[in-house]
Measured scan of single mutants.
Amino acid sequence: AVSDRLIGRKGVVMEAISPQNSGLVKVDGETWRATSGTVLDVGEEVSVKAIEGVKLVVEKLE
Rank of each mutant, 00 (worst) to 15 (best):
residue 46 V to M: 03
residue 12 V to Y: 15
residue 29 G to R: 06
residue 46 V to L: 02
residue 51 I to S: 04
residue 49 K to G: 03
residue 60 K to D: 03
residue 48 V to F: 01
residue 29 G to S: 11
residue 61 L to P: 05
residue 8 G to E: 03
residue 26 K to V: 09
residue 37 G to Q: 13
residue 7 I to F: 05
residue 3 S to I: 11
residue 39 V to Q: 12
residue 5 R to L: 15
residue 30 E to V: 06
residue 1 A to G: 07
residue 16 A to L: 09
residue 19 P to A: 09
residue 43 G to M: 09
residue 17 I to C: 05
residue 32 W to Q: 03
residue 31 T to E: 13
residue 20 Q to A: 13
residue 49 K to P: 01
residue 47 S to T: 13
residue 23 G to A: 02
residue 29 G to K: 07
residue 55 K to N: 12
residue 56 L to Y: 03
residue 15 E to Y: 15
residue 56 L to C: 04
residue 37 G to T: 11
residue 48 V to W: 00
residue 60 K to E: 03
residue 20 Q to K: 09
residue 33 R to P: 15
residue 1 A to H: 07
residue 49 K to C: 07
residue 3 S to Y: 05
residue 17 I to Y: 02
residue 19 P to I: 08
residue 13 V to S: 02
residue 48 V to N: 01
residue 52 E to L: 12
residue 11 G to E: 00
residue 62 E to Y: 15
residue 42 V to H: 05
residue 58 V to Y: 00
residue 31 T to H: 08
residue 27 V to C: 04
residue 46 V to Y: 01
residue 35 T to L: 15
residue 41 D to C: 06
residue 24 L to P: 01
residue 22 S to T: 08
residue 10 K to H: 10
residue 52 E to M: 09
residue 14 M to I: 10
residue 47 S to Q: 11
residue 11 G to L: 01
residue 11 G to I: 01
residue 48 V to C: 04
residue 55 K to H: 13
residue 13 V to M: 03
residue 20 Q to H: 11
residue 20 Q to Y: 15
residue 27 V to I: 10
residue 10 K to D: 06
residue 45 E to D: 09
residue 33 R to I: 06
residue 23 G to S: 01
residue 1 A to W: 05
residue 37 G to K: 11
residue 54 V to C: 07
residue 35 T to R: 12
residue 55 K to R: 10
residue 48 V to T: 02
residue 48 V to G: 01
residue 26 K to M: 14
residue 39 V to K: 15
residue 54 V to Y: 15
residue 14 M to G: 03
residue 55 K to E: 11
residue 23 G to M: 03
residue 19 P to M: 07
residue 4 D to H: 15
residue 10 K to Q: 09
residue 14 M to R: 06
residue 62 E to N: 15
residue 24 L to S: 12
residue 56 L to D: 01
residue 6 L to D: 02
residue 38 T to V: 11
residue 39 V to Y: 14
residue 18 S to Y: 10
residue 7 I to D: 02
residue 60 K to C: 04
residue 21 N to K: 11
residue 4 D to N: 11
residue 21 N to T: 14
residue 50 A to F: 06
residue 46 V to R: 00
residue 6 L to G: 02
residue 27 V to K: 01
residue 54 V to H: 08
residue 45 E to S: 11
residue 7 I to Q: 03
residue 54 V to N: 09
residue 19 P to L: 06
residue 28 D to L: 08
residue 41 D to A: 13
residue 26 K to Y: 14
residue 50 A to C: 06
residue 11 G to C: 04
residue 20 Q to D: 13
residue 55 K to V: 15
residue 58 V to E: 00
residue 28 D to Y: 07
residue 24 L to Q: 08
residue 34 A to R: 00
residue 57 V to Y: 13
residue 31 T to S: 09
residue 1 A to Y: 05
residue 6 L to F: 08
residue 8 G to Q: 03
residue 47 S to D: 04
residue 58 V to F: 01
residue 53 G to F: 04
residue 5 R to E: 12
residue 3 S to A: 11
residue 53 G to N: 06
residue 7 I to V: 12
residue 47 S to L: 13
residue 10 K to E: 06
residue 50 A to N: 07
residue 14 M to S: 07
residue 45 E to F: 14
residue 61 L to M: 10
residue 14 M to P: 00
residue 4 D to C: 10
residue 40 L to C: 05
residue 36 S to L: 01
residue 35 T to I: 12
residue 58 V to N: 01
residue 40 L to N: 03
residue 13 V to F: 00
residue 10 K to L: 07
residue 22 S to Q: 08
residue 37 G to Y: 15
residue 38 T to W: 15
residue 45 E to N: 12
residue 5 R to P: 10
residue 54 V to L: 13
residue 54 V to E: 15
residue 36 S to M: 01
residue 15 E to K: 12
residue 59 E to V: 14
residue 34 A to P: 00
residue 61 L to I: 10
residue 35 T to F: 09
residue 45 E to L: 14
residue 61 L to S: 08
residue 7 I to E: 03
residue 16 A to H: 13
